[in-house]
Structure formats: C-alpha cells, structure tokens
Design a protein around this nucleic acid. Structure first.
Lengths: 120, 120
DNA sequence: TGTTGACATGGAGTACACTTCAGGGATTAC
DNA sequence: GTAATCCCTGAAGTGTACTCCATGTCAACA
C-alpha cells in the first residue's frame, strides 16, 4: 500500500504520515529497493494506533517511547504496561474535565434559552 | 483581589492571567487609578469560566468570541447560544474519542498483563 | 529620600504538532 | 527520450498557547 493510499484510507495527510514516522510513533515503514514506502499489514496497525491515540490527545513523545520499548524486545513488557497505564490515567482525567465543562455549558445554554423564550 | 491572590486561588500563573485578558477570554479586569488589577466578584467568575473551558480544551478564539458577544449586549443572545452549542458538540466528540482510546489501551494493558503472568 | 517589592506593558522566546517547501530520484505515458 | 507524476529527504515555516524578559511605575517602609 502506498503512502497516498494509506493517507486516503485513514483520512490523514501524507505529510503527517511521514512526520509520524520521523517522530517515532510509527516504526520505520517497509520500503522497496528505491526507498518508496510500501505499507504492510503490520505497518498499518501501527498507523491506526498512532492515529487513535493522537486523536485522543496522547503526546507524541509518550507514543514514541512506547514504540521504542516495543522495538527493544520482550524485556520491556513491564515498562510498556506502566507507560500505557500512565497514559490511561491522563485520558481519564481529561475525560473528567470535559464532562465538567459540558455540565457548565449545558447550564449556560439552558439559561440562555429560557431568556430567549421570555423575550419573544 | 490582586493578581497574585487570584493566581494562587486558581492555581494558574499571573502571566497566564494577564495573557487571558489580553487574548480576550477574560474581559478587562477592574483596576485602581494607578492601573493595577483589582479583581471583583464578576472578574473572578470570568476567570473561573476561562480556566474550566481551557482545561477542557476549548480554543482561545472561541472563548474570546463568546466574551465579545457578552460585552456586545443583549442582541447577541442567539449567537451566544449557537457558539456554546457548537463548542459542546466538539467536547462531546472529543470525549467520545478519548473513550475509544481508553478501550484500546485497556485491551493492550490486559494482554500485556496476561503475558507477564505466563512469563513468571 | 532612597530602596524595596509588587505590579504594569510590549515584545521576544518556547513547546508542541504539524505543514510547507526546495531540490532530487524513479516510473509511467506518450 | 522526455515530460508528467509520484515519491523521497532535510529543513524551514506556521498556529496555538503560553512563558519569560526588559523596562518602568508606584506605594510603603527605614
């Protein structure tokens, strides 16, 4: 699969795909002899993971660290778990804060709509 | 209330407080004759709102627009509601994406822990 | 009256995550 | 064979949200 095809499949720019690779949140993608990327199933799984995690807001450097641990072999299993758990906690906290903000927005919206109704 | 006191009360730097004001997500704070900020109850409410919304990830420019509409008077009620609803939708979507990422993280963590158990 | 310390402003600097660009190969279409 | 198209890399540029800095004012205290 070419980089353009991957780009279209996941709705992400080719520049971003190359950037993700350079940043280390996707391991080096399989290439042909002339150096052109040819994404294999495994590459695509990394792409997918990177995109999901970035959409949720996980920082590049945490993801890069995770990828590096993966490439470093089986000894790094405990560190990988710890890293994932830390990131999970951050997501949990962020979700909480979004929930609180939504409650406040809802209250404001409701008040405004009451005022609008009474003003007709 | 001085800017330092507000900073301590909300756990945010004085630089950020001044920046928020300059960026327009807090209306111009009450000052004494020599130009020093003296936060009143109303100012504090704006500060609180700005901090909550920023923590949830609402962009500066959306908040600035909301503040501007507020200062522009009663005619802007419908636009304010619309703006708040748009931002609410964005938060909803973001919360959704965080939820999905958490599910994936959970699956990975679980797999790792099984592998770790079988490796002892 | 001189020094200290909190606060002011405008502007430069930083961190993060892309995004764009310049300059070059390799393939394909004619 | 050459023009068009797709891809490559390294480096510079951009947008967002702060964060830091130089310089200056002002009130209070020794």
């Amino acid at each position: 699969m070419t980089i353009t095809e991957v780009s279209e499949k996941y709705g992400i720019s080719v520049d971003t795909l190359r950037y993700y690779e350079k940043a280390g949140i996707i391991p080096r993608v399989t290439r042909n002899k002339s150096g052109i990327r040819n994404y294999q199933e495994e590459d695509l799984q990394w792409v997918q993971l990177a995109i999901w995690m970035r959409r949720a807001g996980l920082p590049i450097d945490a993801l890069a660290k995770y990828v590096k641990l993966n490439l470093a072999g089986e000894d790094t299993l405990p560190q990988r778990v710890e890293l994932l758990k830390t990131q999970r906690l951050d997501l949990e906290r962020q979700r909480q804060e979004i929930g609180e903000a939504m409650t406040i927005l809802d209250r404001k919206i409701q008040k405004y709509e009451e005022r609008l109704k009474n003003n007709t």
